[in-house]
Every structure is written in structure tokens, then in C-alpha cells.
């Protein structure tokens, strides 16, 4: 009986120790890149799909919005209202080199470089894009279907006549 009790005690202590290690991990989510703990992010996954920006810099209440569709043929469609409050559609190509995600808009403007990580077991799936050169610039994108009304109402970035793009830059 004593041996059994000792075993149980060791197991409980091991579990408590594991919790303590996890709790003390300074990289735990909730700050930059929160939403999932780092233990749930990995370098293995696919960026292909439709994503919505759900968290940026640790905040999920955002004044801006972005939907990103990454296609298998390495083209992308980006629907955003950031500097404009109306939805604007960008397109272009992207490339994935290891864990570095980058791209080029159709007008030749380059993306910033991002380090991409993939959620292991969250549902829906998420990707985390950390901007290279600014560890605070972390965006969590959650898998979603881009709403048809946003696609329909988005103005093409190249067609906006007056204000949506140039006046806010």
C-alpha cells in the first residue's frame, strides 16, 4: 500500500511540476501573439486557405480588419479596411521559404517578411505571423470563409478613384 501511495504521490508531484513549468513559461500567450500558447504553435503546417485577422499585438478588439486568402498557385487576395474604413481588395503573389512568408502586390509593392507558425490543435486553425524586425507586430489569423458581402463590396485597390487609398497614406 505504501509503495502504491508513493507512486501516486510522485505522479501528483510530477503533474504539479508540469503545471508549474507551464505557468512560469514567459512565452505563454496572452501578451504578444496570444490566443494560443507557444507550445501549441509549430513550424509544420500549410498557409493555404482563407484567414481573418482576429488578434494583433495581443488585442482582439481592432479598429481595422483584414481577410487573407492564400491560394495553392501562390496567388493571394487580401481584403482589408485598415487605413480606409471601407473594404479594399489587393491581390498578388506570395512565397513561403521555410518559415518565412513574404509576397508581392500586383503593383510591385513588396510585403514585409513574416515568420509563420501554425496552430497544432486549435479549431478552427490559426496561423501566427510575426513581422521580421518587430517582435511586437504579431498577427493571429483564424481560418474562416471570407464573407461574400465583403468580397462583393470591396473596392479594387487599383480602381479607387479618390480617397480610399491615396488620401490615407
Amino acid at each position: 500500500m505504501e509503495a502504491t501511495a508513493m507512486k501516486i504521490s510522485k505522479i501528483v508531484l510530477a503533474i504539479l511540476a508540469l503545471f508549474a513549468i507551464v505557468a512560469c513559461n514567459p512565452n505563454k500567450g496572452g501578451g504578444n501573439g496570444g490566443g494560443n500558447t507557444d507550445s501549441t504553435w509549430s513550424d509544420n503546417g500549410s498557409p493555404i486557405g482563407e484567414w481573418v485577422l482576429t488578434e494583433w499585438n495581443g488585442s482582439s478588439e481592432l479598429p481595422m480588419g483584414a481577410y487573407l486568402r492564400l491560394n495553392e498557385d501562390n496567388t493571394f487576395n487580401l481584403y482589408q479596411h485598415t487605413l480606409s474604413v471601407l473594404w479594399v481588395h489587393y491581390k498578388g503573389t506570395f512565397s513561403l521559404n521555410g518559415s518565412t512568408l513574404t509576397g508581392v502586390y500586383s503593383d510591385g509593392t513588396k510585403w514585409n517578411d513574416y515568420t509563420i507558425k501554425y496552430s497544432n490543435d486549435s479549431e478552427p486553425k490559426q496561423i501566427k505571423l510575426t513581422r521580421k524586425g518587430d517582435a511586437e507586430d504579431v498577427g493571429i489569423y483564424t481560418a474562416t470563409e471570407i464573407p461574400a458581402n465583403i468580397i462583393d463590396q470591396a473596392t479594387e485597390a487599383t480602381n479607387v478613384r479618390s480617397i480610399v487609398i491615396e488620401r490615407f497614406l
Partner: peptide, 14 residues
């Protein structure tokens, strides 16, 4: 106010 280290010159978020 959005504080970032820079922004695409065409206004794109990425």
C-alpha cells in the same frame, strides 16, 4: 492610431 514599424507604400496591410 495604429503604431507600426512601417507600412506598405500602397496601403496594403501585409
Amino acid at each position: 492610431v495604429i503604431v507600426r514599424d512601417g507600412h506598405s507604400t500602397n496601403g496594403g496591410w501585409m
